[in-house]
Design a protein around this nucleic acid. Structure first.
Lengths: 134, 134
DNA sequence: ATAACTGTTATATATAATGTATAACAGTTA
DNA sequence: TAACTGTTATACATTATATATAACAGTTAT
């Protein structure tokens, strides 16, 4: 089971945040599915050359956000019951994060249509095409 | 000209970042237009009860990003030539910021259509009061 | 039972980011 | 001259980030 984590140690973005995003992307791409095991804090830390506490910080936050389930003596797995669905509170949090990005884009004359196209491109990268099963 | 800055000192988000976002939102809403003056670092700092260096840090970054023009002995104004238009590099930066947000939304079963609707709502918020009919 | 493995906790250290506090400088304006 | 600009420098405190060890409590395989 290969580890598909790529970190940028030159980035101003904290390592534990990059780690969180990489794991979430793995889940979004269905490379990681509910029940799938993740490396132990020690093995993953050694594999990517960082401290086990940095890995643990990422795991703890992912657990807090409902992405992971952690058994003290067993191990770490993707939440078997699935990731908690988006509620209204989450949607507001998303909007709060989108706000500065959209404001800046408006200032720079990036049209709404272009912005939405940028979003669509990312969805395409994740190979999600607004699937309809009716 | 009063600048409506509202900061959340309890937030984990740095003050200078909140300040940057507020000013950019003001420009996006056309409340601040090219050539418009901004308060001096000292007066704005005193108005909102923070240090002048915190204001200066925000101003410097906004200058770096092309939003402000700063004359050493004159003052600070919204860039008279207008804000630099979005280029491909900027679009890639936007996508890089959108990526974790979209990945998380996919994990939480927020559909692409719902996500784009959230974006649309924000665009609608910025459109209010931005109507200039002549 | 021993050894190797889990997550967890504690302590300590180092560096950077953030924010404040003073002070001074150089130039402009009233 | 006095009051105002942005700018720079220094110092300090707090928090965030990251690492380094060490130990603990339970599991699992040998």
């Amino acid at each position: 089971m290969g580890v598909f984590i790529s970190l940028d140690f030159e980035s101003s973005q904290p390592i534990y945040l990059q780690l969180i995003h990489q794991i979430i992307e793995g889940i979004a791409k269905k490379e990681l599915q509910p029940g799938d095991p993740l490396p132990s804090v020690r093995s993953l830390a050694q594999d990517i050359g960082i401290n086990l506490h940095t890995v643990n910080k990422a795991y703890q936050q992912l657990k807090q956000d409902g992405f992971l389930q952690i058994h003290r003596q067993k191990g770490v797995v993707i939440r078997p019951e699935g990731i908690p669905k988006a509620d209204n509170i989450y949607k507001e949090q998303v909007q709060q994060k989108l706000r500065p990005l959209i404001a800046e884009s408006i200032c720079k004359d990036l049209s709404k249509e272009e912005f939405l196209t940028l979003c669509q491109t990312i969805y395409h990268d994740f190979q999600i095409g607004g699937r309809n099963d009716d």
